[in-house]
């Protein structure tokens, strides 16, 4: 079987996989990182979003082998080593941006990428458009948008440190 070597949340692993193994299957089934979820089979819900080399991508629409040699960050890897939550995590909790929590890992990973790539700041409307790839069935998005908005200044301040 082919082998894939990648660094996930700072830890490098080499794993044998069938060629047809998806990245999300590698993460969940082989590496035990079940924080990344699967909510659809048409690449539309964003429950599976992780970062690859700094970009948010849908882990259900990538072969594990395509991720060979990359740096992957999942929801399990965004808090600081001492357990301090990422500002986006903090703001999701503060603003009640989650209910059942199933969309949350993908939503948080998408949101971090969205805010990080837009240091000039995003309007409410831009945040809503930026979430085009993520579905949430519980919240009506109202509080997710609020949480992302609130995280902007925190994230940019942290990046400037």
């Amino acid at each position: 079987m082919p082998q894939v070597t990648l660094t996930v949340n700072g830890k490098t692993s080499s794993v044998e996989v069938e060629a047809r193994t998806l990245l999300v299957e590698l993460l969940r089934d082989k590496l035990g990182l079940t924080g990344t979820h699967v909510g659809c089979d048409t690449s539309q819900c964003g429950a599976c979003v992780v970062h690859i080399d700094g970009n948010s991508v849908k882990a259900c629409t990538m072969l594990a082998l395509q991720a060979d040699g990359t740096k992957v960050t999942t929801i399990e890897g965004i808090a600081a080593a001492d357990g301090t939550l990422h500002p986006m995590q903090e703001m999701f909790r503060e603003h009640h941006a989650l209910q059942c929590g199933f969309c949350t890992p993908g939503m948080v990973m998408s949101a971090i990428d969205l805010v990080a790539k837009n240091p000039q700041g995003l309007s409410e409307d831009e945040i809503r458009h930026g979430l085009e790839g993520n579905l949430c069935r519980c919240t009506g998005y109202h509080n997710i948008v609020k949480a992302i908005d609130a995280s902007q200044s925190l994230m940019h301040a942290k990046a400037a440190e």
Partner: peptide, 9 residues
């Protein structure tokens, strides 16, 4: 096109 994640790939 699509969304941020689709555009990334």
């Amino acid at each position: 096109i699509g969304d941020i994640q689709v555009r990334a790939r």
